[in-house]
C-alpha cells in the first residue's frame, strides 16, 4: 500500500469548521499518510492541537501564512 499526501482545503469555513473536513479525510486515510490542512478559522490552531493530543497522531508542522493556517499531520495512530 502506498502512502499518500492529501491537501484538505478548509479555508473560509468556520461553521461547522475545519475539523469537519479533517475528520472526513481521516476516515479515508491510513497510517503513514500525510494530511495537509488549510484553514482560515482562527480557532483552528488550538482545535488541531487538541485533536492531535486526543488521537495521538503526529503534528509535523503548524504554521501561519499571510492568507491561511497550514497544519501538516502524519497519520500514525489509526487502528
Amino acid at each position: 500500500m502506498s502512502e499518500a499526501k492529501k491537501v484538505v482545503d478548509a479555508r473560509g469555513l468556520s461553521c461547522p469548521g475545519p475539523i469537519t473536513n479533517l475528520t472526513k479525510a481521516y476516515r479515508d486515510a491510513k497510517n503513514g499518510d500525510v494530511l495537509e490542512i488549510w484553514a482560515t478559522d482562527p480557532g483552528f490552531k488550538s482545535d488541531i492541537k487538541a485533536w492531535i493530543e486526543r488521537t495521538k497522531n503526529e503534528l509535523v508542522e503548524l504554521r501561519e501564512e499571510k492568507d491561511k493556517i497550514i497544519a501538516i499531520i502524519k497519520i500514525t495512530a489509526k487502528k
Binding site: 469548521g17 482545535d47 485533536w51
Partner: peptide, 12 residues
C-alpha cells in the same frame, strides 16, 4: 461528536 466541543463552531 467528532469536534473539539459539543458544537463545532466555537462561538455558538
Amino acid at each position: 461528536v467528532p469536534y473539539p466541543r459539543a458544537y463545532p463552531a466555537e462561538t455558538f
